[in-house]
């Protein structure tokens, strides 16, 4: 498909762009190690007092931490840079160049930027997940692995839609800069299974900002806590949200070009 080929090309160019700044690699590595270090320390602190946190044992929480790091890496490698670029382009008028290209504008706006060094987090996340899986003292089958991967994709899609809808608001409100910090703050809550939070917060992290779907649900898939109903629900939800995002985006575009005025 043409769009996928385009995405790959942009990924390559984005990677080449970033590869020129090798210092960023070491900075990111350092940051990643630091984050994981503090994460491990807090896990150790928790489990020196108890053997299970809301039903999650150490190995399982390690998996949550791994998924959290992995998904954070995915967000910062692709989703976040593209969305900030989009906000900037709308503000400066360079978004016109996206619209004059004979390609789907939403796709183009979503694949243009890649911050390749952020993918260090993806790698470390995968390693932590693997260590967690090896330490799980339960049987682990191919079914779980597949569900896990599916839920990861669904989680990433939901986060993308969440960002995209907020970013589309830039067509109305041109200054949307606090979005990044706001999201980072909320996303941090995802380092623990959302089940440990009080009801209102759990609800918010599931429905308002889909952090639960991005981190907790894939972790549940990997630790065998997920039932088929939730899996189907998550897939359905992602399809619905993708559609809503698309509709809202077209609405925003019409606003941008003054068709609604």
């Amino acid at each position: 498909m043409h769009e996928i080929r385009l995405a790959w090309l942009f990924f390559r160019v984005g990677a080449m762009n970033e590869l020129q700044y090798r210092v960023n690699f070491f900075l990111q590595l350092f940051q990643s190690v630091l984050a994981i270090g503090t994460g491990l320390v807090s896990l150790w602190l928790i489990f020196s007092h108890t053997s299970s946190l809301h039903g999650w044992n150490p190995a399982q929480l390690l998996i949550v931490m791994g998924v959290f790091t992995l998904m954070g890496g995915v967000i910062q490698t692709t989703i976040q840079p593209n969305m900030t670029q989009l906000i900037e382009d709308v503000q400066q008028g360079t978004f016109d160049y996206v619209l004059t290209k004979p390609a789907d504008a939403q796709v183009l706006a979503s694949i243009r930027r890649v911050e390749i060094w952020q993918s260090v987090d993806v790698l470390t996340g995968v390693i932590i997940v693997l260590i967690g899986v090896l330490r799980l003292q339960s049987q682990f089958g191919i079914g779980r692995a597949v569900t896990f991967l599916l839920m990861l994709v669904v989680g990433a899609l939901l986060i993308y839609c969440f960002w995209m809808i907020l970013t589309t608001l830039a067509f109305w409100v041109t200054s949307m800069w606090h979005l990044v910090e706001l999201f980072a703050g909320v996303y941090n809550a995802g380092r623990y299974p959302v089940g440990i939070y009080p009801g209102w917060l759990r609800y918010g992290l599931t429905v308002v900002v889909p952090v639960a779907f991005a981190v907790t649900v894939p972790s549940e898939a990997l630790t065998g806590r997920l039932d088929t109903k939730t899996v189907l629900g998550a897939v359905a939800l992602s399809l619905i949200l993708v559609t809503i995002t698309r509709v809202f985006w077209s609405f925003g575009l019409r606003r941008y070009s003054g068709a609604s005025a």
């Binding site: 080929r5 385009l6 090309l9 942009f10 160019v13 080449m16 762009n17 020129q20 400066q92 008028g93 360079t94 016109d96 160049y97 004059t100 290209k101 004979p102 390609a103 183009l108």
Partner: peptide, 26 residues
């Protein structure tokens, strides 16, 4: 559409790479 005051090339890369992107887009 060319706007003299706005840039659409990949800033950190040689223009040949931007050319390749346009080849793919068009």
């Amino acid at each position: 559409l060319v706007m003299g005051n706005r840039n659409q090339l990949q800033w950190d890369l040689p223009a040949l790479d931007s050319f390749e992107l346009n080849r793919a887009i068009y």
